[in-house]
Amino acid sequence: MTTVEKTQKKKQNFFSYWYMRYEMATEMYMVEPWEKVVVHALFAVVFLLFWYFNSAIVISGISRLRNTSTHVEEIL
């Protein structure tokens, strides 16, 4: 086995191990394959919604706060 193959194998093991741990933590270890797909899709949707919420509302809100000085003027 060449070094490249070894590294690849190691990577594969690493990913399959942590995928198994992820399945264990979310109880997906014991469900049928199609059910895994449904739950993955659900998690992806929730994750993307959070992402959108963060980028669209939280980050823009913070940047607006940082760039404006109206509140300082109000206080003064």
Binding site: T26, E27, M30, V31
Partner: peptide, 14 residues
């Protein structure tokens, strides 16, 4: 508990 919710949800879908 999250895992149990997932199982319950899948059960209802099933």
């Amino acid at each position: 508990l999250l895992g149990l919710y997932v199982l319950m949800f899948l059960g209802f879908v099933n």
